[in-house]
């Protein structure tokens, strides 16, 4: 009894346990892990070898497409967070954690951290394979750091957004529908073909959706070309998505557990 009363609240300690939990679950969820690691590579090979020959971007196509594939891979990987969160909400474990005075934020934080780690691994894999098939970045150390920083910001923002979707979805199946939507979003952007080659009515969307400045910045950083103000727009998107997602998850969490 006495150690019960003395037990101090420890949000950071809880977060540590939750990060470890989510990471272990990710590693053991073989199918999902394999998909999230293999899919981006398959997509890259598909674009480079099957479509790439017919696409004229003014550069070697692999060079053009790698930043897009990296973003696609980040968004898909992050979106899997939704499924993990919905699982926790529906199978009763969230109730148990809450009744143990573990905050919902640390449970979600664990999933977001695991998602970030998983995405970094898959990004490294994509870059490795890209290098093997002829991708030659010409980035300085500073460029690399900027690219990694922006990528981290994007993954973090998308993962929290996915956590919000996970709270919203009633079943894990519904949550996995979200991954499809997020995977589709990079297509109408400059990820795979230049926006100018698309019909004019779609330019407005493609130029102004969040993936375009993210991809343009990555491309600029990796290839050492001018980036203009893309990184700032991309960062603003990331911060905006992150702030809204954190607020929304807070609200949703209260409502789902009312």
């Amino acid at each position: 009894m006495s150690d019960l009363a003395l037990r101090p609240a420890s949000p950071l300690g809880d977060l540590g346990v939750m990060v470890r939990r989510a990471t272990t679950l990710t590693i053991r969820n073989g199918d999902a892990l394999l998909t999230s690691l293999a899919l981006p590579i398959m997509l890259m090979l598909l674009f480079v070898y099957l479509f790439g020959g017919a696409i004229n971007t003014g550069t070697e196509y692999v060079t053009y497409v790698v930043p897009g594939v990296i973003m696609l891979c980040a968004s898909f990987g992050a979106s899997l967070t939704a499924v993990a969160v919905t699982n926790d909400m529906t199978n009763g474990i969230m109730d148990r954690f809450r009744s143990m005075d573990v905050s919902g934020a640390s449970v979600l934080g664990g999933h977001v951290a695991a998602s970030t780690a998983r995405n970094l691994v898959s990004t490294v894999l994509v870059l490795g394979v890209a290098f093997l098939i002829g991708f030659r970045p010409s980035a300085s150390v500073v460029d690399w750091l900027a690219a990694v920083g922006l990528l981290l910001a994007a993954i973090l923002a998308l993962s929290w957004a996915s956590a919000a979707v996970g709270l919203l979805a009633k079943t894990p199946e519904a949550a996995s529908g979200f991954t499809f939507f997020v995977m589709f979003l990079p297509y109408p952007s400059s990820a795979f073909v230049p926006v100018e080659t698309m019909p004019t009515w779609i330019h407005g969307f493609a130029d102004n959706q969040p993936f375009t400045p993210m991809i343009e910045s990555l491309r600029g950083f990796l290839l050492g070309t001018p980036v203009g103000n893309s990184p700032w727009i991309a960062l603003a998107w990331c911060v905006g998505i992150l702030v809204v997602s954190v607020l929304v998850t807070g609200r949703l969490f209260k409502r789902r557990t009312a």
Partner: peptide
């Protein structure tokens, strides 16, 4: 009523 445990652990 649900088994509130992680199946993969």
């Amino acid at each position: 009523q649900d088994t509130a445990l992680d199946e993969l652990l």
